[in-house]
Simulated scan of single mutants.
Amino acid sequence: MDSKKLQTLFPEGHFSDEAATSDAVFTFTTDQGFFLLEKERLSPKEQQLIELLMPQAPTENPARNHQWYRILFDGEKPVTTTPIRVIQIRIRTPRAFLQTEWLAEIKDMFLQLADSFFISETELILVEEKADTNYPVEEIFGLFQALDSDFDLYTQVFVGAFHHESALLAANFLEERQIFQQELAASTRQKEFPFTRSAISFFINEPIKESPLMNSLFREWFSDPEMVAILRALWENQGNVSSAAKELFLHRNTVLYRIDKFQEATRLDLKNMDDLVFCHLLIAVFSEQ
């Protein structure tokens, strides 16, 4: 929730590192922690409106029986200081499937799983504590690919960052959730959403799309689909020309020739990581997925 808008609407409220424990105070999770608002400072109509917009009562939402749901969505104080990360999973093709067996497989795989719960029919939350046995992000994606094959599912998986500051868990999770939702809206075919790549997309895409300069450079530099493919391969292979050529089934000299022509036209140097990163961002933002 936008902290500035809340402060403007309710100047009598204040920010805190901890959620309120009293029923006489409304607690909002924001990008700056928790915003506390005493109910007695509001009119009855304002209280009714806020209550309508607040999360449902516990009896109406089974997920609230999970403590980690209340920590992440309601701002309840965490019971552990162990760093955690949240893995968000969207089942894009909801239908009858062996859900109990699927969840059992997930719990067997994630040895440090603190909690798991559905927040809707198509969305699962996994809360994982940090330990030496945590899987690398790419291995997590591989595990869900295998499960999709075994259970005839199509899942999209967002792996969040590990968070150490327990007081900010709810606010950090809220922002990660916003990042994942935007990524889902932008790509219906993508299955894997690592935190770093998704965060770059979330914070950079829109400003770049609105820039006349960036639009112009993309049209001038990347009109050739074959050069776009070469640049993508270079990026994925950390600038290694031989590996990029092998991936594209092209001779190394052919790739070098095309790179030289591109650099001559743009005055860029693709051995310079800043130039390669810039090309990658323009292609990622403007190319059709």
Rank of each mutant, 00 (worst) to 15 (best):
L169K: 07
R95G: 06
L256A: 13
A19H: 04
M227P: 00
I200P: 00
Q112V: 00
L268E: 04
G33V: 02
M54L: 11
E105A: 09
Q178A: 14
G75Q: 12
W221T: 03
T27W: 12
E18V: 14
C279G: 02
A146W: 02
P44Y: 10
E165D: 15
F118G: 05
L231P: 09
N215A: 08
Q190K: 15
F110R: 02
E288M: 01
N237F: 02
F118K: 03
K209N: 12
L53S: 05
E175I: 09
M109A: 14
V228W: 01
R197C: 03
E38S: 02
F278A: 05
F34L: 10
Q190W: 04
E12T: 08
D150V: 15
V277T: 09
I89S: 15
L42I: 13
V137M: 03
L53E: 07
D224H: 04
M227T: 13
V241E: 05
R64S: 11
D224E: 11
T100R: 07
Q112M: 05
V25I: 11
L111K: 03
Q238W: 01
R92H: 12
H14G: 01
S198H: 06
T80W: 02
R92T: 15
E101N: 09
A96K: 13
L49V: 15
I84R: 00
A186Q: 15
N272G: 03
E210I: 13
L98G: 04
A245K: 00
E264W: 01
L231K: 05
Q181V: 07
L126T: 03
F203H: 12
Q48H: 11
F35L: 07
V86F: 00
S198C: 10
D150S: 10
E12Y: 00
M227Q: 09
P207A: 11
E247N: 07
N61K: 05
S187Q: 06
H14A: 12
L184T: 08
I84N: 01
F193C: 03
L270G: 06
R41T: 15
I119S: 14
F35E: 03
D115I: 01
V137H: 02
L270M: 06
N272K: 13
F286D: 10
L282M: 05
L248D: 04
L281A: 07
Q182G: 08
M109W: 00
N240V: 08
S216M: 09
V86N: 01
I50C: 13
E192T: 04
H280P: 09
G13K: 00
F162A: 14
E101C: 02
R197K: 09
R95Y: 07
A229C: 02
L37V: 00
R177S: 12
H163N: 14
D152W: 09
K130S: 09
D275P: 10
E101I: 10
A171M: 03
E165N: 14
A245C: 11
